[in-house]
Design a protein around this nucleic acid. Structure first.
Ligand code: MN
Ligand code: MN
Ligand code: ZN
Ligand code: ZN
Lengths: 140, 140
DNA sequence: TTCTAAGTTAAGAATGATTCTACTTAACGG
DNA sequence: CCGTTAAGTAGAATCATTCTTAACTTAGAA
C-alpha cells in the first residue's frame, strides 16, 4: 500500500482521501467491480462522493498503469487492479468473473504470424461456463 | 441465402422486407458492424426504418442462432453473422476486427480443469495489435 | 379474394452508464 | 499559512440501447 502511494505521488497526482479510499478498495480486489460497485462502497465512508470522482480516479489509475478495464460484460465496464496479463472465466448464469493465470503465449504465438500484416502486442481469453455455485444449484 | 430464408420461415418468424434486407446485409459480412452501421446501410433502401426494427431483428437473429454479439469494444456492440467458434484480432489504432479461425481447443482445454467448480462451454480470444495499414502509416 | 389474429414497424420516450460543465474545495510546495 | 492549481461535487448532457404504443403487414382461414 505504501509503495502504491509513493508511486502516485511521484507521478504528480494529488492524493485525496477519496482517491486513497478507491485505491484501498481496489488493492488486491479480485471481484472485478463496476464503477457503481466502487461508488457504493466508497460512499459508506465518504457520503458526498460523486460518480465524477469515481470515474476521474479510474481514469487517473488507468493512465498510471494501476488498473485495466475488463471488456467482458457489454452492459457496463468492470475494473481490475491486476494489470499483469491474465485471463478470465465468466459464469453465464450469475456473472461471476474469476482470474486465470495460466500462460498461453506459446500456444497462441504460432497463430499471430498468420494474420496478414498485423503486429500483435497482447491477447486476452474469456472462458465461458457456469461457476460451481450455479452448477450445483441447477442440479438440485 | 435461400437456405437461410427457409430456416427462419420454419422457426415461425415473418420475413418482412426490412428483415430480409438486414439478413442480406449480414450474410457473409466479415466487417463486424454495429447497430448504427446496419441502420445506415439499410436506410438507403428503406428510408423509414427505425432503430427499433434493427435491434428487434438482431434480437430475433440472435435467438435463432443466426448471429452473435461480439464484446470487444466497450463503447458499443458489434454483430457477427458467423456463429461458428472463432477468434478476433483487433487493431488498437483503427478498431479493425479481423477473424481468426485457428482452433485452440487443445491448448486451452487443459486449463479448464484447473478453475475450481467451473463447467466450461466455450471460449473466445482477443488478439490486440496494429493492423497492416496502421503499422505502415506509423512507419512513414 | 377478403377477413382476422398475431406479429411487426416506426416514432419517440425512457433508461442507464458514462462524460461533461461550472463552480467550489482542498492538497501541497514554498 | 498562502497561493496555485488539481480535484471534488451536483447536476446536466450524451449516447447506445430498450421500451411503449399505435398503425400496419403478413399469412392463413373462410
Ligand atoms: Mn482479473
Ligand atoms: Mn468474427
Ligand atoms: Zn455463477
Ligand atoms: Zn488499424
Amino acid at each position: 500500500m505504501e509503495a502504491i502511494i509513493e508511486k502516485y505521488k511521484k507521478s504528480g497526482v494529488k492524493l485525496t482521501p477519496q482517491r486513497l479510499a478507491i485505491i484501498k478498495f481496489l488493492e488486491g480486489n479480485t471481484s472485478h467491480p463496476t464503477a457503481d460497485d466502487i461508488f457504493k462502497s466508497i460512499k459508506k465512508d465518504y457520503p458526498t462522493i460523486s460518480f465524477a470522482t469515481v470515474y476521474n480516479t479510474l481514469e487517473m489509475l488507468k493512465t498510471n498503469n494501476g488498473l485495466v478495464e475488463v471488456t467482458i460484460n457489454p452492459e457496463r465496464k468492470h475494473y481490475d487492479p491486476n494489470v499483469e496479463t491474465h485471463h478470465h472465466a465468466i459464469c453465464k448464469s450469475c456473472g461471476l468473473i474469476v482470474d486465470i493465470f495460466t500462460d498461453f503465449s506459446k500456444a497462441l504465438g504460432v497463430v499471430e504470424d498468420e494474420v496478414s500484416g498485423f503486429v500483435f502486442s497482447g491477447n486476452h481469453i474469456n472462458f465461458y461456463g457456469r461457476c460451481g455455485d450455479c452448477t450445483s444449484e441447477r442440479d438440485s
